[in-house]
Amino acid sequence: MSGTVVLTKLLHVRETEKVQAQKAYQQAIDCFENSATQLYQLLKKKEVAEETYEECMQQTTTLEKLREQVDYLEKLNAMIVHLQEEVQRARADMEAKQSDLTEAHVETKKFEKMIAHRKQREMEAQEKLEKSMMDEISMQQFLKYKNR
């Protein structure tokens, strides 16, 4: 029984690690979603800006207005490149956290199975002991009545 107590304590530690891994994974997901949403919004802005630029090219527009539009597009492109890198880092972090969570889950399952196997063996040993005790009692009763 002491073996299962130790394993139960270790299981509790592993479950705590699993909960922490789940929290870290959820935070990584939130960070990734936030970065990806920002990137999506910037890409939409860039698309609108490019459409505006194309419209300006079709119409007669001042050179200053075209320069402003090009500068704005270049600024958006720089921000998009930066955000793409941030999204990639967030994705990599999220995948690492998912791997950690999977590993923690596997470790928890291992301890749960070890505890279940130990308890099964203890039950079997207990049943075997009870059977041998019953056999001994039966034998003693038989010998007691035989001697009468």
Rank of each mutant, 00 (worst) to 15 (best):
K65D: 15
E51A: 11
K45S: 10
V81E: 06
Q41F: 03
E47D: 10
A78I: 00
L76A: 03
E64S: 15
L76G: 03
H82L: 05
T62E: 10
N77D: 07
C56I: 13
V48F: 03
E55R: 06
Q69H: 06
K45C: 09
A49P: 11
M79K: 04
N77C: 02
Q69E: 11
T60W: 08
L73E: 04
E74F: 02
K65N: 13
V81P: 00
Y53L: 04
L76S: 00
M79P: 00
D71P: 06
L42I: 01
E64V: 14
S35G: 09
E51N: 12
K44P: 03
E74L: 11
V70L: 14
E50Q: 11
K75P: 00
C56D: 14
H82F: 04
E54N: 10
L83I: 03
T37N: 15
D71N: 12
S35K: 15
Q41G: 04
E74A: 06
Q59L: 14
K45A: 07
K45Y: 04
H82A: 09
D71M: 08
K44W: 03
T60M: 08
E50H: 09
L63M: 14
L83A: 03
E64D: 10
Q58A: 14
Q59Y: 10
Y53Q: 08
E74G: 01
K75V: 00
Q84G: 01
K44F: 02
V48C: 01
T60S: 13
Y40F: 11
V70D: 12
T52A: 10
E47L: 05
K46F: 04
T61G: 05
S35L: 14
I80A: 01
L42A: 01
E54H: 03
Q59E: 15
Q59K: 15
T61C: 09
L66W: 02
L42T: 05
L42K: 01
A78T: 06
H82K: 09
K46R: 11
M57L: 07
A78E: 07
V48A: 10
L66S: 05
L66K: 04
E50P: 05
E54T: 08
Y53R: 05
V81C: 00
H82I: 00
A36V: 13
N77W: 02
M79L: 08
R67Y: 13
L83S: 05
